[in-house]
Design a binder for these strands. Structure first.
Lengths: 168, 168
DNA sequence: GTCGATGCAAAGAATTTGCAGGACC
DNA sequence: GGTCCTGCAAATTCTTTGCATCGAC
């Protein structure tokens, strides 16, 4: 991998994130319940973006059922504390991923139009370009989302020569 | 405005777009119906991004009521033909805006966290950075969405010194 | 013991779909 | 005249809320 290669999978903090989240939740005056901790561990363990339903389903399958409402309420809490990042890639439901409130491990996303796969990636050049762009607009910019859509390696294979053209 | 200033409101093609859309729809084997043309004109006339509900409501208010289902079906058609761009900014419903299939007039969006306003902007520098980034990943990238979130000029005014900090 | 947190089920909201009748070519 | 298109209403899906109960502090 050369220095111009975008870094794949920015490897989230996992356990580190879970502890941070529990600490921040407590600090914000919230209680530590079993269902909540279960959800936190599930989110922290996954590197991919999850929907509320996926979280609820996987926890049920794991023998630790948590009500869907609780999942949504927990995600809302975490989003307010900037501990999860909500991502709307256009599917039916919103997706969530762990985030560091300070912005470390920040990254962008590739979305496959064919299979729906979501792949995170980091790119310092792009990141700088975004910051510069943010200075040129008249909004006071805080966050940003960048989504590149196309075909993932697996799906691109099957339709290699169609070359629908990369429109801007 | 200096050369480093991002261009505000990329002024969409309006009538030009409506004609293009009708032509392309016909070319794709679809019929020209009254409700459909009405929707096309509504979309083409707006420079801001609209939700399906907004389109239906405004048309009803204008005395040209069109069923919501028809609005959705028309938007789906247009999206497939790349004549509208769907935008998920995180609200309850998806937003749509006219687009040129070739990518002309392509732009990005500023979203106000406070009032929900969506402002389009163009930025050639950012655009180039995105294209370069797209070459560094292993997806075959076609489209992209860039959303900068923060406070619009009006909303920023009221909370000027809070400076919650631009996290990356 | 108090008050936040949970779960279930009902409520809401956005979008899709089935179907009978009407419009376009 | 055969299809495609439309509108309405029912169906789906995602998310939020009300409320009685349970559990953390």
């Amino acid at each position: 991998m050369t220095s111009t290669e975008a870094t794949r999978v920015p490897s989230p903090p996992a356990d580190e994130w879970v502890e941070l989240a529990e600490r921040e939740l407590r600090r914000a005056g919230h209680r530590a319940s079993v269902p909540r901790s279960t959800i936190l561990r599930m989110i922290g363990a996954q590197e991919c973006v999850l929907t509320a339903r996926e979280i609820a389903d996987e926890l049920r399958a794991a023998g630790k059922p948590v009500g869907v409402a609780t999942v949504y309420r927990t995600l809302e809490l975490l989003e307010d504390l900037r501990l999860v990042q909500r991502l709307d890639v256009g599917g039916d439901s919103a997706r969530y991923e762990p985030a560091m409130p300070g912005g470390e491990h920040h990254h962008h996303h590739l979305v496959c139009d064919a299979c729906g796969r979501v792949t995170p990636f980091q790119d310092p050049h792009l990141e700088r370009a975004i910051h510069r762009a943010a200075e040129r607009v008249d909004y006071r910019v805080g966050d940003h989302d960048v989504i590149l859509r196309g075909s993932c390696p697996d799906c691109a294979e099957g339709s290699s020569r169609k070359a629908r053209g990369a429109r801007s």
